[in-house]
């Protein structure tokens, strides 16, 4: 039922109810222990704020899967620009719509930062700290070698994958990550050393894909 209602409307209604209930206590604090006061206090200060924050967290985590979110940081612009370069693996996926353009980064980096376990979330917070304080590593590297799982969850079983030379013989090696897909299919992004720093400092501008609301229009 709730998924039929757009997220922004739920957020607006919940916030409005929360503000009105809290405003009532702001103006009439004396009613806190009168009649239904304690129950209303529990609703105003526990239930509704909990709901408002849960909705907000859900919406923020949902938005952080968007390409727009990743590319809002300048240091990610070099990687984002490779989505427009059909010579790179990322660019081929983007140009051919093998990945949804709205979630191009997240589709291939599913366990990155916020979306993994506790340690991944801590790394995500570390990224925020780096973004606002020191500056990113250059070149940017994933913490762990890229897992074939990210490729196989779409490609395994596809006719084009099964018929390609070498895939059928090596499938167990791919599953076990003893042979990386990237050994043959490279470069993934092809960002040169130094580009990340230039982007972070605003010394170089990069062309980025337009993946806003107008994407998919004629």
């Amino acid at each position: 039922m709730l998924e039929l209602i757009p997220g922004p409307i739920i957020a607006i209604v919940a916030t409005l109810i929360g503000v009105l209930l809290a405003a009532d206590f702001l103006l009439r604090p004396g009613r806190a222990r009168q009649g239904a006061g304690p129950v209303m206090a529990a609703v105003a200060f526990i239930a509704v704020p909990g709901l408002v924050l849960t909705i907000g967290a859900e919406r923020h985590i949902g938005m952080s899967k968007k390409t727009e979110f990743c590319l809002s940081c300048h240091e990610m612009h070099p990687h984002g620009s490779t989505l427009l370069d059909a010579e790179t693996l990322a660019g081929k996926h983007f140009a051919n719509r093998y990945v949804p353009r709205e979630q191009a980064c997240y589709t291939c980096h599913t366990e990155y930062t916020m979306y993994g376990g506790l340690s991944a979330k801590m790394k995500g917070l570390q990224h925020l700290l780096v973004h606002y304080s020191g500056g990113p590593a250059d070149p940017i590297k994933t913490y762990d070698p890229y897992k074939n799982r990210e490729c196989l969850h779409c490609h395994e079983g596809a006719a084009s994958f099964d018929e390609a030379i070498g895939h059928g013989d090596e499938i167990e090696s791919f599953r076990a990550d003893t042979v990386s897909c990237l050994e043959c299919h490279k470069p993934a992004h092809g960002v040169e050393a130094g580009e990340v720093t230039k982007a972070y400092r605003g010394e170089k501008q990069f062309d980025l894909p337009q993946v806003g609301a107008k994407d998919g229009a004629h």
């Binding site: 916030t15 405003a23 907000g56």
Partner: peptide
């Protein structure tokens, strides 16, 4: 209660605006 309610109102509005 007044301080708390004011803080809750401010917090909820900021939480919404951030979205």
């Amino acid at each position: 209660i007044r301080l708390g309610a004011f803080s809750v109102i401010a917090g909820e509005l900021i939480a919404f605006a951030s979205q």
